[in-house]
């Protein structure tokens, strides 16, 4: 088995009331819990905007996609905005396949 890139998530306060989660590595079945926890932690604070920076995600599977969906819906439930600020062409393609590109409001 080849070395896989470990998943990492970093939480930045980009502006007051806004949290940016920077995810890197492979967001798969094994990393989904860690990613979810980071999302939940961000949403537990009084949040106005949740931003995801996914430019460093090398791979994502259905469990990872579920994390993104949960983040989107969790933000909606908290009354916070949701935005993907950066992503790879591959991830964009996947989001288009599941036809969530309009909903998630991808950057141009």
């Amino acid at each position: 088995m080849q070395d896989t890139l470990p998943f990492q998530v970093e939480s930045l306060v980009s502006e007051p009331g806004a949290v940016r989660l920077v995810m890197t590595g492979e967001l798969d079945f094994g990393a989904a819990d860690e990613a979810s926890a980071a999302v939940d932690k961000a949403l537990a604070e009084d949040l106005r905007l949740l931003e995801l920076d996914l430019a460093g995600l090398k791979f994502i599977d259905s469990s990872g996609m579920a994390v993104l969906m949960n983040a989107y819906m969790g933000a909606g439930e908290c009354g916070a905005g949701f935005r993907i600020v950066a992503l790879t062409p591959y991830l964009r393609h996947l989001i288009e396949v599941v036809a969530l590109d309009d909903v998630l409001g991808l950057p141009d």
Partner: peptide, 13 residues
């Protein structure tokens, strides 16, 4: 052919 994933949104396309 494409369409939205199921189980996420109330309104799917």
């Amino acid at each position: 052919v494409r369409g939205s994933l199921l189980g996420a949104l109330k309104k799917i396309s």
